[in-house]
């Protein structure tokens, strides 16, 4: 069956849209880490390269002009470092709750930043970030979404972003 020209145009636009989402994700990670934690992304790496490492997971849903979710994994060596900078405390003084709180806050800032870049003219309701109980690896195998891994030298940050209902075109 031959698709309509509208279908073909939609298909042609998919890679462009994916590239735009992934660019926004990368810019957001760089901005949040540099501004709030004074850390720089050294390079992007392959998902499989860091899969074996221990991570702390957080997730965050959003609704409104589009629905979706951001999931975040911060390597266990990096998370205390992030919390230390955030609270201005030595790593040895940090509680588990403080470390988890900062990972959740990182998910919150990333989600807001990505949406602001993607859809500045739309209204969203952001859910509360929470530590994740589901399996990011399993979820991403089912639907990889837009996923990226950032190596900071001192640890890594994995991000997955899904938009289940695309914003209506103007």
């Amino acid at each position: 069956m031959v698709g309509t020209s509208s279908d073909q145009a939609h298909e042609a636009a998919r890679p462009r849209e994916a590239a735009r989402v992934e660019r926004c994700l990368r810019e957001s990670v760089e901005e949040v880490l540099e501004t709030m934690f004074f850390l720089t992304v050294e390079q992007e790496v392959d998902w499989a390269e860091v899969s074996a490492k221990e991570h702390l997971f957080a997730e965050m849903d959003f609704q409104g002009a589009a629905e979706g979710r951001l999931e975040l994994a911060v390597s266990a060596d990096l998370a205390p470092m992030l919390a230390s900078g955030f609270f201005g405390k030595d790593e040895s003084e940090l509680s588990e709750a403080e470390i988890r709180g900062v990972v959740c806050e990182l998910a919150n800032m990333l989600c807001g930043s990505v949406l602001s870049r993607l859809e500045s003219g739309s209204l969203f309701a952001l859910g509360a970030p929470q530590m994740m109980t589901s399996d990011l690896e399993k979820l991403s195998r089912m639907d990889p979404g837009h996923r990226k891994v950032f190596d900071l030298g001192c640890g890594d940050v994995k991000t997955c972003f899904w938009m289940w209902r695309e914003p209506e075109e103007a």
């Binding site: 807001g112 969203f124 952001l126």
Partner: peptide
Amino acid sequence: VSTDSTGSR
């Protein structure tokens, strides 16, 4: 002070 900085918000 918010993560939501869409122009509309």
